[in-house]
Design a protein around this nucleic acid. Structure first.
Lengths: 176, 176
DNA sequence: AAGCACATGTAATTCGTTACATGATTGC
DNA sequence: GCAATCATGTAACGAATTACATGTGCTT
């Protein structure tokens, strides 16, 4: 009973609107791709379990076996209680940063290259997010309003990463 | 053969100095706690596999069954090739941010509380890292030099998080 | 009729966490 | 002698990824 975040991600999306597994996957592959990635097999599995335990119900069936899921009151209660009564798991994992610890086994030139690539990648991602922000037509529904807050986080994160990687690159270059 | 980052984390630590599983766990629980957390059972398991495939060897046995592992040339080659020839997996997962998407199911007051808590938590973590930076006696060995770069990342990250959460809190408060 | 998007599901494997299980040495 | 620390290992479970497997309906 410890984590089960995917479960709540699915509930959260269905609290905004009724959807099928296929619909949800589009959201997981776009808006949530950098926040809580999930695979198709995970999502379909979770929908089945949630419907089995009464937090969701199949509210309509469409062509090609499509099943539309709707959140139940029990599901909304569970979602609210997750948001209010539980603390998020704040475990961080960064392979990029882990590698920094081991740059000592590389030559200074190789290390500088590594950090330059990271700076460039962060800059690219930042640009991509700016493009996205301009492109999306932000409604005033909940997911738009709060999704924009999340996107702003991404903008600040990638800006910070670029600055840090450039700084770190200069530090390493200065060691010689 | 896709990820196996823990494998390389272990190799990386042993490239710096010979150590036992017990020694490595102290590093995973401190320096690497916010970068690449690992459990004791994972680490001991990985040491066994790495020794079995010749990337490490048991260079000494001490009291209480202690085994000291030393990286082999093959292990160093593998570590370098991981650093140079492979791209880090940059998958990000943030339960904190996921929750932001769903704040629409809470009342404005509840949402403001959530973001305030996150701002405070980021500020706390930032202070804790500053304390750590002052406290550690930074040598000029590789792990110290590169560990400091990683710590600076943590300082910049937590500062950014506090600013963002405060800004987001004000945004949400302004909706009413 | 062909191609693409829609649509769902299962199986196998790996990675990670928690809990269990055991014991030796050192310092007080 | 007792407590703390040192020290390693296994078992069970849950979460996540990849690959497989199959089929329908719409548009041109």
């Amino acid at each position: 009973m410890a984590v089960m975040t995917l479960r709540h991600a699915v509930l959260g999306l269905l609290a905004d609107r009724t959807a099928s597994g296929y619909d949800l996957m589009k959201v997981f592959d776009t808006s949530l791709a950098n926040v809580w990635p999930a695979t198709q097999s995970q999502v379909y599995g979770e929908l089945g379990k949630l419907a089995g335990s009464g937090l969701l119900e199949v509210s309509a069936e469409g062509p090609r076996g499509r099943k539309e899921y709707t959140i139940t009151q029990q599901g909304i209660d569970e979602l609210r209680s997750w948001l209010i009564d539980t603390e998020p798991d704040r475990t961080r994992r960064s392979e990029t940063l882990l590698r920094v610890f081991f740059l000592g086994v590389l030559t200074p030139v190789e290390s500088v290259t590594y950090l330059s690539v990271e700076a460039a990648r962060a800059a690219d991602e930042h640009t991509e997010l700016e493009r996205l922000e301009a492109q999306v037509d932000w409604g005033d529904d909940d997911l738009s309003v709060y999704g924009r807050l999340a996107l702003e986080y991404g903008l600040r994160l990638t800006a910070m990463q670029e600055e840090w990687a450039s700084w770190a690159r200069d530090q390493v270059a200065g060691l010689t």
